[in-house]
Design a protein around this nucleic acid. Structure first.
Lengths: 247, 247
DNA sequence: ATCGGTCTGTGTGATAGCGCACAGAAATGA
DNA sequence: TCATTTCTGTGCGCTATCACACAGACCGAT
């Protein structure tokens, strides 16, 4: 839900809102250019279902997408978050086509998409493209691994901090449209648990929230409260994904 | 700790004890053949540390290796298990060189190893090799994701069943050399929690254990008690990694 | 045969998180 | 303006798991 409506334009400027696209060599980007399609991703949209094939890969610019697993008895757990630093649909170039989880839009916005077959071709043809996507996938791997660790050892409050920081890192603004109920689904805990943790963070002056709107007030404060998992993941992303090319 | 001492031989027969190697086309295998080195992996050996570079990739035959994350305050959690179905060191071909976790031998045995640089060359040169390793990596991704889900939602007893099944799937025998203390480190829970769960499984006649030796008695029984996570992971491995080539 | 170390069993109390039930406040829509 | 829905706050009892402490059983080495 960007406040300024992003124009549906294929200018390099806009393309570069996705870090992966921004990092591609210019000739590579020129080749993809006309095949990239900017699409809005409304809140709650399902990009792929568990086991579902993808017709496109999505490179978010302002949208944030969660990879979720839903258990047989209806509980859910977030496996990882993908925003403008990454791409949805790694199964396409990893060779498995599908994954046993689903991708849901967590924060509305836009994404570029590219036809599956086209990306597969490009993945096989272009070494820079391959390197980039594989390094991103390794970062994703780390995010999943750290989610497992965090689920095992850290408190709801710490996890909420991690989740908020990961989300705000991927947002263009300091406001997140998100109810406590939805967050609890992501983290796989009770809504009341999020209410408690969020209230603590609010009274500490780190965030401010109000009926589905969360505002970041004190990033440093959140980082002081978060478990090590956030730092581990962030460090890996920074290490694996080189700075975007200046535009 | 194989009861029959595996000869240090490079025959295709022995190579094929690792599913990935066994699945490679014959010409590919012939090229690697003389570079593969069979090494023993004693219990507790650290194959790589967090952030440590790898000189070799390891293709286990009889050994089982755990990828572990150790938190700042000394707690640990297993991220995934690797045995004769896989390879240790995906960071090498994914491009990141290192990972923020460690690889420890969980069950002694043997592995073939290959110099990092050689595998990188081969990964870039050979399409079948690349496809195989990437599909394996996707399966690993699923194992990590499911570990996160399991840590969130399932009981220690269910997780123990999952862990035992994953381990026995990768062992040549029905006996596992493993103390409850070590299992608790893997699962990131207390030793007493494992004692309780294990005793239940023993009185149900599913396993038998005695001072560091666990014997599988009733695989079906374990599968009846395990959470869905085991099945999800197993199904993905079966789907992504084609049957080994008949030897 | 004995000693010391390792492995497993058990108890007691604390606590984080869960399930449920409900209330009040804020937004929404007719 | 009013009714309805959505979102957040709160209370209460329950359970799984934790932390710590210790005992008994078994094993291996001397």
């Amino acid at each position: 839900m960007p406040t300024t409506h992003t124009p549906v334009s294929h200018s390099f400027h806009v393309l570069s809102q996705n870090d992966l696209l921004a990092t591609l060599p210019v000739d590579e980007l020129e080749r993809l250019h006309h095949h990239l399609e900017l699409v809005p991703l409304p809140l709650g949209e399902v990009i792929y279902e568990s086991g579902g094939k993808l017709s496109h890969l999505y490179f978010p610019t302002t949208a944030i997408v969660s990879l979720l697993y839903v258990t047989e008895d209806g509980a859910s757990a977030e496996i990882s978050i993908v925003g403008n630093e990454g791409v949805i649909g790694v199964a396409v170039f990893m060779g498995g086509d599908t994954m046993p989880n689903m991708a849901v839009v967590q924060s509305a916005g836009y994404a570029y998409r590219l036809k599956t077959q086209l990306l597969q071709q490009e993945f096989n043809r272009s070494l820079p493209m391959r390197h980039l996507l594989l390094r991103y996938t390794q970062a994703l791997l780390t995010q999943m691994a750290q989610t497992a660790v965090c689920n095992r050892h850290h408190s709801i409050e710490q996890q909420l901090c991690r989740w908020l920081l990961l989300s705000f890192d991927r947002l263009p603004s300091d406001e997140l449209i998100m109810t406590q109920e939805l967050i609890s689904n992501m983290l796989g805990v009770r809504r009341e648990g999020i209410t408690d943790a969020a209230r603590k963070l609010q009274s500490a002056g780190l965030i401010e929230y109000h009926r589905g709107h969360i505002t970041l007030l004190d990033r440093q404060g959140l980082e002081d409260n978060v478990c090590e998992c956030y730092g581990v993941v962030k460090k890996e992303y920074d290490r694996l994904l080189p700075d975007r090319i200046a535009t």
